[in-house]
Design a protein around this nucleic acid. Sequence first.
DNA 1: TTATTCGTTCAATCCGTATTGAACGAACCG
DNA 2: CGGTTCGTTCAATACGGATTGAACGAATAA
Lengths: 162, 162
Amino acid sequence: MAIRSKGKLQLIEAVGNLCRRLGLPRTVGQIYGLLYLSHQPLSLEEIAEGLGISKASASTGTRQLLALGAAKKVWVPGNRRDLFEAVPEIGALLRNAYWEIVKPYLDAAQHRVEQVVAHLEAERDQALIGPEDFAFCQKRLEALARFQKNFQSVAPLIEKLL
Amino acid sequence: MAIRSKGKLQLIEAVGNLCRRLGLPRTVGQIYGLLYLSHQPLSLEEIAEGLGISKASASTGTRQLLALGAAKKVWVPGNRRDLFEAVPEIGALLRNAYWEIVKPYLDAAQHRVEQVVAHLEAERDQALIGPEDFAFCQKRLEALARFQKNFQSVAPLIEKLL
DNA sequence: TTATTCGTTCAATCCGTATTGAACGAACCG
DNA sequence: CGGTTCGTTCAATACGGATTGAACGAATAA
């Protein structure tokens, strides 16, 4: 049955909007919100019914939550269905998200900046860009790399605090 | 003229993608990338031409950058056009973004959770939700509020480190 | 075996929002 | 004053990605 409680709906909507801001599908957040406030694990059909979304959305949404470590399948004896429950430790979720998503992204970004510098050096040698133009870009890119490095060094510290 | 340097284009594209991830229009990031690597301020038309976007996009994009404090107008004597240059201090930008965007959002979220609790209490009193269901939700919401509070207290610390 | 009940997949659709072209007003120029 | 050169605005469009319905395979049940 669809959710009746207006209070629960408010939270579900809020989590959905938060996820949208973070670049995740809104339904993913809604499912997490639903599970977060449910003291028994829910099946795909209950999720779909409760949120008024299709079973397909519920399937893909739960899969994403599993991948993020934000939900887990629980097995109940004598029940053929997959049942899901929320992982309620938000801090742990963020910590995991940092290592799984943010950190690799930062590493890639660092590498990309170095590539750009190399590219510009080559273009300077081929006189495709002026030397003073190159010097300016180099200065900016070095500052950028410096910031990235500093950011990478404080990030684990931040991660500890959550 | 359109950008020739492949190196510059790589960085512009990367910043564009980063902004897209953060929920900002890609063009905003592209404009910032362009300005970040340009040692003279650029006009709307130069931006539009350089990135291959419309003047309208350049106009709205620069306005957003100004609002974010990520660019500023500079005035050059004897030039009727608005000229833009990047604010290159990334750390300061993030710090500003925290106070202008993240902090208000967190405050609103805190308040919203309290509202949800109040709502649920009312619904329990009206027997719209079972008492054990309410107790579970209350427990979860308290944990959530606790996390938010903790997060709010460490956030300024994080902000200092950048 | 056949019939159900699940969960997943994927092409088609839908939806939000970024982007644009055209129209407009303001500031300058002749 | 007209006539340009700007920047902005806004309705229309284009686009990317979320969502769905239908088809499918696997697993159970009968």
